[in-house]
Simulated scan of single mutants.
Amino acid sequence: MAQQKVVVITGASSGIGEATARLLGQRGYRVYGGARDPSRAKQISGVKFGALDVTSDESVASFVAWVLAETGKIDVLVNNAGVSLVGPVENTSVNEAAKLFDVNVFGPLRMIRAVLPSMRNARSGLIINISSVLGFLPAPFMGLYASSKHAIEGLSESLDHEVRDFNVRVVLVEPTFTNTNLDVNAATTEAPLGVYARQAEATTKTVLAQIKSAPSPTIVADKILAAIEGPYKMRQPVGGQATLLSRLRRFMPAKAVDSSLRKTFGFGKG
């Protein structure tokens, strides 16, 4: 049983965030879940929900101040809130890309900046950033989403060096496709697919098939719990497929990885 550690989870009203809040609440953690509309969140024992928009400096500051006022500390931050975007890089507007990065990259940055002073003062803390297999192995037609996860990976590595002397560590949890609304209902770029239509539609069909047979968010929640309670390891792929892909990326020749990706997503040789 956890000794009433305080955990903050962003995007906690559905998917991976909800599954994690539920599991940690059951394990005795004091969980504070952030949601854009807390009234729509399901009631979970051991979990308090508060209004949180990670794209707003004011909302982030208010939420963190509320948690600290109630508890005096934040032991663990789980940066889970995220959005997806599917479409050709050429068709992605700067505005679409900016909105995605505002949630997926600047959102975690806002949360990290807000919680770090209390963690440093306590000389204790853990920041868990939800990345993705696409953070180290990009997929076609998910260029901007993959870019945002690459950014989170780089930010996390740099941050871990900076805060380690304060006994604060950073972890990357890297799921592959998960059966959540985020993956199933991913937004698409507004511009018509044009010359990319045939391949984009074939790739999307392949991805959706993988999502429908993908594990539930509970597998990611289990990994987050293990990251909190187990020995430290920065990169933590979720499940056998993600672990295999991580190893292939590290040890397979680049040409073989490239060919395998193209085959997976229905591209010809090239």
Rank of each mutant, 00 (worst) to 15 (best):
A35P: 04
A35K: 13
R36V: 00
D37M: 03
D37K: 05
P38I: 12
P38W: 15
P38F: 10
S39R: 06
S39I: 01
S39F: 00
R40Y: 03
R40H: 07
A41G: 05
K42H: 07
I44C: 02
I44T: 01
I44E: 12
S45T: 14
S45K: 14
G46Q: 09
G46R: 10
V47G: 09
F49A: 05
F49N: 04
G50S: 06
G50P: 04
G50A: 05
A51D: 02
A51C: 01
L52I: 04
L52R: 11
D53S: 09
V54I: 15
T55E: 11
S56P: 03
S56V: 09
D57H: 11
D57R: 04
S59I: 05
S59H: 10
S59K: 12
A61R: 07
A61F: 05
S62I: 00
V64Q: 07
A65M: 10
W66N: 10
V67I: 14
A69P: 01
T71V: 14
G72C: 03
I74H: 14
I74V: 15
I74Y: 13
D75G: 00
D75C: 06
V78D: 02
V78E: 05
V78S: 01
N79W: 10
N79T: 05
N79K: 07
N80C: 04
N80Y: 03
N80K: 04
A81L: 08
A81H: 09
S84W: 08
S84M: 12
L85Q: 12
L85A: 11
V86R: 14
G87Y: 12
G87H: 08
P88D: 07
V89T: 07
V89K: 00
V89P: 00
E90Q: 10
E90L: 14
E90I: 07
E90S: 13
N91G: 10
T92I: 06
S93F: 09
V94E: 12
V94R: 04
N95K: 06
N95L: 01
N95E: 11
E96S: 11
E96M: 07
E96Q: 14
A97V: 03
A97D: 06
A97H: 01
A97Q: 08
A98E: 15
L100E: 06
L100V: 15
F101N: 10
N104M: 04
N104E: 14
V105Y: 09
V105W: 03
F106W: 14
F106H: 13
P108W: 15
P108S: 07
R110F: 09
R110P: 09
M111F: 11
M111W: 08
M111H: 04
I112N: 10
L116G: 00
P117C: 12
P117K: 11
M119V: 07
M119L: 11
M119H: 08
R120V: 12
